[in-house]
Each structure stands twice: as C-alpha cells, then as structure tokens.
Design a protein around this nucleic acid. Sequence first.
DNA 1: CTCTGTGAACCACTTCACAGCA
DNA 2: TGCTGTGAAGTGGTTCACAGAG
Lengths: 224, 224
Amino acid sequence: MSDAWKRAPLDEPIPELTTARLSIYLRCLDQLHAAGVEAIPSSALARHCGVNGALIRKDLARFGELGVRGVGYYVAHLRRHLRQILGLDRRTAVVIIGAGRLGSALAGYGGFRDDGFDVVALFDTDASKIGGATRDGVPIHALDDLPAVVDRAAVAIAIIAVPADAAQDVVDRVVGCGVRAILNFSPGALRVPAGVKLKNMDATLALETLSFFLASGPTPGKDT
Amino acid sequence: MSDAWKRAPLDEPIPELTTARLSIYLRCLDQLHAAGVEAIPSSALARHCGVNGALIRKDLARFGELGVRGVGYYVAHLRRHLRQILGLDRRTAVVIIGAGRLGSALAGYGGFRDDGFDVVALFDTDASKIGGATRDGVPIHALDDLPAVVDRAAVAIAIIAVPADAAQDVVDRVVGCGVRAILNFSPGALRVPAGVKLKNMDATLALETLSFFLASGPTPGKDT
DNA sequence: CTCTGTGAACCACTTCACAGCA
DNA sequence: TGCTGTGAAGTGGTTCACAGAG
C-alpha cells in the first residue's frame, strides 16, 4: 500500500468520451481567452459548455492537478496544457484518399489548418486527376505513391473519402504504410488491426438516426 | 411468418446507441438478403457486424418478438421491419443549408438517395449562387425562401454546412420553419429547443480525438 | 436439440457530496 | 470563504446465463 501515488499522466487509459470533452473544453477556453478571462471555476466552465462541473474536474484531474483551490483554472495555463495533451502543440500531416467532391471539399476546409492539421496531399486512381491539384493547391497523387508521400511528409492521419466498395482496400493500403489514425467518411464497417485507431463519420447512419427520431414520434431527447 | 406482431413496449424510450445499431443490422441484412440467406441466428449476425449476440436480441426485442426460437431471424422479414422502424419505408425530403464545397458535395452524394433521402434544395446567402443549381441539378435558393420550400416540399431534415459563426443563426431559422431534425457539420456547440433532434458531425473534433490517440502513445483501443 | 427473450450480474461513465487546501 | 480533487452513490448500457418455445 504505497502512499505516494502521483497523478502521473496516463497511468490508466483515458475514456474516449473524456478526450472528446477535452476538445470541447479547449474551444470554450479559446473563447474565454479571447474575451480576456484569466481564471474560471469548473462550475462556470460547465455552464459555458453544457456539462456537469464535477465531470470537468474529474476529466482534468486525470492529467494532474491543473486547478487551483479557491480560484478555479487559469485559462491560459489550462489552454496550453490541453493543447499539449491533445497533441495540438505541433502540426500534424494529413492525407485525404479520394479526390472526389467530398475529398476536395475537405482539403479546402480552413478549419483543419487553424487547428494544426495540414492536408499535404490527396490521392486518387482517376488518371485525369493525378498530377493535378485542388483549387487550393493541394497536389493529387496516384494512390500508388501513397507510401512515398506518407514517408516523406511524416503523415500521421489519413482521411478516407472514397466510395464504400473501395474503402476497405484503401484502409488496408493506408495501414500498410504505417498510418495509425484514420478518419473514415465512407459508410459501412471497416476492419483495422489492433493499434490503429479508426473513427467513422457516417452521414448516412446519422440521417437514419434522425429518421428514426422523426418516425417514432419526436420525444424530447438529448442532442449529440 | 405471421403478421400478428405485437406492438412492442415502446412505452419506454429507445437508447440512441440502439438506434445506431439498428442501422448497422440493416446493412448486414441487406448484404445477407443479396446473398440469398433466408434466416440467420443472432450469433451469426453478431459475428457479421461485430457486436454481441445478446445485444442484438435485446435491441430487437424492444420492438416485439421479431425472432423465431430455434431458427433465428428471417432476413427479409426483419429487414422490412427495421426499415419501417427507422422510417426508411418512405422517402424523406432534406435540405442543405450552405451551398459551399461541402454542401454541394453532400447534395451530389448518391448514397442518401439510395437510402430514401431526397435533397430537394440548397440554401445560401451568396447572391451569385442563388437561382442556380449544383452540378447535379439541385436548385440553390436564397435563405429567405427557406420557410416556403420547407412547407411546400414537407422537408423533415436540414443539413447544416455553413461556417461556424453562421451556424447558430441558421439553426434558429431552420427550427423556426418547423424542421425538427438537424444534421450539423459545422464545428462548435449549437442550441436547439426541446423536441428538436440535433446530430453533430464535427470533423475537427474527430481529428483532435485521433491526434490525442497519436500523442498519448497509441494504446490498442476499440474503434468507432 | 437450437435459438430467442430476459432477469441478473457486470461494467463504465456520471453525479453527488464533502474533506481539505488557498 | 470558494474551490478543487475524490470516494461513494447513482445511472445506463452490455454481457452472462438460463428458462422455455419451436
């Protein structure tokens, strides 16, 4: 029974719901920082981003004693800390597979760049697109060039924006290049080996969820 | 198979996680149906879509006794039933607010139509776009015409694809037109009144989650 | 026999409540 | 005093295990 149990970073796994909230806290803090707020108690931050105060404290306490008793959390300090925890204190290279409409739209979205993510290239199998670039100047490569680009640009994340029937093959190739984080926009389930993180953004699934809500007599429910 | 299915205990609310899984089950069933499978036990369906068999039985049992003991579930029958539960047995009119790159890309995505969702119009405030149409022939209206179109086409779902700083205002207008289901692609939290279902598809949030995974020593975890 | 439907156990996350520090 | 950090209680969803229908 040891007494000195330091709240060292990551001694136990962090629930994904917690990490999603960290991003939300960070956005609130950005606003507060811009508004010149220096410190804020969990209760006020909670009201600001619509969650329970105790939950914020528990979430943050996982990463050390970030707060100050009697005061709350120093905005600038916590902001810096969260950015570091989320890996936003450095830039991350991202590739998009599929230079169709969705892939091109995502490549041109400035929100990613502002957040530390650089879309360094798109990939496609359409010969008429290969060698070109999007309207924003992001080059479009042949899918076969993926390993070389991933290696050269130290790509950490791949975004999948290809038709459903090509998605699994693309994922396999991406994983084969050593990419361990994938954001998938295509519908349907994809398999990835252990150690690779796959996050799905399935718009069709979301529409069906809304359709169910409408079909089953709109009962007031929580939003997501 | 008898049509004498009992009206399920819909007296208690259905968890959203359950409804998301219903969509997944349905997709599996579509494949099985195409493959000519007539009936399938929960254990096999479970393996097929990567969840626990008991969970499938619990999910489905909420809507009545859909299975047959000793046999499993009849594919065609269950498929029809799930489509009805999810409200996919009829077509649903959808509008997209924001005729930028993302909005246009979504308007042209055939997957929605195949699933029963018709994108009937886009809306924008850019005068140079208003009165035109997307490459797929979907008309682009002025945002001020929203109430008229929603009314005329019986629009049930709105997709938000506008910049973050315009999102809340757009949502308020959409809700004001009587639309009670919203799919939001813009980052940040939005407020909707009770009785309106809001579903967020925040790509930046997803990228940050992946970034956290990469930053905190990729521990093998479940995918989403 | 096989497989569903379901109570009970289990587990994960959230909220409550309060000791303790500034 | 006001607030954080945290054990304890509460909540909700998943898995287990089995009675019972076909």
